[in-house]
Structure formats: C-alpha cells, structure tokens
C-alpha cells in the first residue's frame, strides 16, 4: 500500500500550487484516492476528531482535575484566569497556550482526546486551532481542511523521521505537533503552501534535539508544559512565515535532521525515564513517591 504519492513536503506544496488548491484539500483528495474511500465519510471522520478536540478544550478548561499520576492538573485553568486580568506579557498567544495545556492535562487525567500525532502531544493542535477559529472567525470546514493539511505534514514527518518519543525523543512528538500546527495556522491565515513549509521548518528547527524524559515514566512532567510551549512556538513560527521570513534550511531537510538527531539520541533520553528531567533529584523523588507499589 502506498502512502499518498508524495515523499516530500516540497512536492506536496508544488502540487497544491499547480492545482491552485490548499494543501489541506490536496491531502484530503489524496486520502480519498489512497483509501478508495468516500469523500463524505472521510470528511466526516475528520470532522468527528475536530468535535472531540473542541470538547477536550472545553472539558479541560472548565473541569480541571488532578492527573492520574498526581503530579499535574489545573494549570490551563490558572492561565485562563490570569489571561482574563488582561495584563499578560505575551498576549493572544496565551489563549492557545492555556487550551493546549488544558487538553494535555485532560489526557493525563484519563479524559477523552485525539492523538495528534500522539497522546502525549495531543494538546498543541487543538489549542492552536480552537484559538484561531475564534480569533479569525473560521468555519468548522476551514479547520477540518487545516487538520488534513496537518496530517499531510505529519505523514511526511513519519516517513522521513519519526513521530514517537521512544524512537526520536520529544522533538518527534511535541516537535512534530508544533510543526503541524504551525503549518495549519499559516494555511488558515491564507498563506501560500510554501509559507506553510517555512512555518513547519521554522517551528521544528527550534525543537531539534528535544529529548523525551518523562518523570516517573508518566505522560505528565514535562509533557503538559511542552504542549503549552509547543502552541506558542507554532503561532510565532506561523507569524514569521506569514511575514515572509523563509527558512534557510528547507522543511524536508529539517525533518531529515530531526530523524537523524533522534537516531543519535541515547536510549536514556527516549522515553525510558532514565535521563534528563526524569533523573534530576526532584524527578527521582517524585518517581519514588508516585510509583509506590504495594
């Protein structure tokens, strides 16, 4: 079975440009073709995921709970309250950050989420997209196509590098989610397919080398906050690309570098909780406390 017909983001962008359609539409049509599916059922399936993402944002913000492991919870809500006071330093970006954080917290509290691309990094895309929907007054349809664009970017990352923390560190999870969100944001703001690629590259470059070092091996610390900052990264990268700033290293090569860095990463820093933050004195203490076996 062949996965789409493209092996690089550059090919995808050229294709979209040539046909005069958005990247999201191109990926959607590719999915219909590859899976020999019905246009309506494939659209509906993504629409269902979008519904669940919106519900997760809502639930995470309005019903803050302690995580299953007990190390996090309630920070998304805290940030929204702070935002309402109107004296933030980073402004609108926090609208997305607070939601990403809330969804990541919901995940850690055994709530219902959409892996995007993984459960650990599930907050970034819904945080960025729900914020943009409100700010830019976008239809659900526009967002659903943006989710196809994000999936297309993710498929290329999966092909050329990895989406798994155990294989490539957190750059492959939260790094990929941020890059996908950055690309989707540019598309929603009316950028060209090539600006989408610049956003992907700019976003991912700043997450290269990010290790996966979860305290106690649980998807809590530092995962939730990496989702939060991943949303900020995505929006700033999108703005930079929309301003006409190009990435000197093309997106496909940045993704290749991410894969290579992942392969060079020691196993201790790939989800095993044997290094990084997981092995700090506090990390070790927390692990002892939260993993007590009776």
């Amino acid at each position: 079975m062949k996965l789409m017909e493209w092996s690089s983001l550059a090919e995808m962008a050229a294709c979209a440009q040539e046909q005069g359609i958005s990247l999201g539409r191109l990926v959607f049509l590719g999915e219909v073709r590859d899976t020999e599916g019905q246009e309506s059922s494939i659209y509906e399936r993504m629409s269902k995921s979008w519904q669940v993402m919106k519900e997760a944002v809502e639930e995470g913000l309005s019903n803050p709970r302690k995580s299953r492991g007990g190390m996090i919870g309630g920070d998304g809500h805290k940030l929204t309250t702070y935002l309402k006071k109107g004296s933030t330093l980073s402004g609108d970006v926090l609208e997305a950050v607070s939601r990403s954080l809330a969804v990541a917290e919901l995940n850690a509290a055994m709530g219902k989420i959409v892996a995007a691309p993984t459960a650990g990094s599930c907050g970034i895309i819904p945080g960025v997209l729900t914020m943009l929907q409100e700010k830019l007054k976008l239809s659900d349809e526009a967002i659903i196509y943006a989710l196809f664009a994000a999936s297309g970017i993710g498929l290329i990352i999966a092909q050329r590098a990895s989406l798994s923390g155990a294989q490539g560190g957190c750059q492959a999870e939260c790094g990929s989610a941020a890059a996908m969100a950055a690309g989707a944001a540019v598309e929603l703001a009316g950028g060209t397919p090539f600006q989408v690629l610049d956003a992907v590259a700019i976003s991912m470059k700043n997450n290269l080398g990010l290790v996966c070092d979860p305290v106690a091996g649980l998807v809590e610390v530092p995962c939730a906050k990496r989702n939060a900052l991943g949303a900020a990264n995505a929006l700033v990268a999108a703005d930079m690309a929309l301003a006409g700033i190009g990435s000197v290293i093309p997106a496909d090569e940045v993704i290749g570098a991410m894969g290579e860095i992942g392969r060079a990463m020691p196993e201790a820093l790939r989800e095993t909780a044997q290094g990084g933050l997981a092995r700090t004195p506090t990390g070790v203490k927390l692990a002892k406390k939260f993993l007590r076996l009776e």
Binding site: M1, V27, L106, K112, V114, S151, L155, Q159, L163, M180
Partner: peptide, 14 residues
Amino acid sequence: YMSCFDIIGPIMVG
C-alpha cells in the same frame, strides 16, 4: 502510517 487518521487519531482516553 498510511492514512491521515494514523496521524490525527485515534480518538482515545489518555
């Protein structure tokens, strides 16, 4: 990974 839904998805409880 063969489909968009391997990337965005599954819908699951964390």
